[in-house]
Amino acid sequence: MLLRDFFRGVSTLAETTEGIVEPALPESARRPLHAAIRAFESGSARILGPRVDSSDIRIAAKFVRGEARGLVDAEKCAKVLAFAWEETRPAEKGFRLSLSETIAAIRLATIRGSDNRCEFRNAAAMLLELRQLNLARFLPALPFSPAGADARAFDSRLFTYFVWLLAEREDTIENELGLLNMAMALASEFSDEVDACIGDRGELAALMENLANHL
């Protein structure tokens, strides 16, 4: 988990460095830089994406519903969130945030959640709590929190993952990825509604329930 976080940080740093340095370089020097960074990304991609299976996703789904607790399940949930984060990254070019799987696991293990009987209200309470904990950074573990458009993008992603996890499960990872992409499309289509209710647990729970049921 720590190794994956390390590579996430270096990968983000490499992308940022490329964006800053490349325009200032002569054409002859750009290509080798570009090739070196792509080679690094290709190698690190295999490490970055945590391997998850259907049972990990089921545990994560129980966790966000408030039906599972404890460090082991929190680690599974963090692993699934990191998996979703990496899987949905290509959809948003220029997205600069990174999710620390280690910090997410620690935070999820200590999260208060809610004892409400409604799974969607539990999930909404957890989402709002996670939102305050700044799980996403420009570099994992560094204390530079997102603001403005980055914070909004982080909210949208968190909402996507919760809607996905609250939906009825699929049998294969391929189908789960399809479902995750559908959740992304829904979160994007309903972005104004997400923004409007992100601070209100009841409204957020209702929106998540509605969209999860339509996935």
């Binding site: 959809a91 992409n181 559908m182 992304m184 499309a185 829904l186 994007s188 289509e189 309903f190 339509h214």
Partner: peptide
């Protein structure tokens, strides 16, 4: 992506 977007838009 366009298909998902269409379905979400329709919904």
């Amino acid at each position: 992506d366009a298909l998902m977007s269409a379905m979400a838009d329709w919904l």
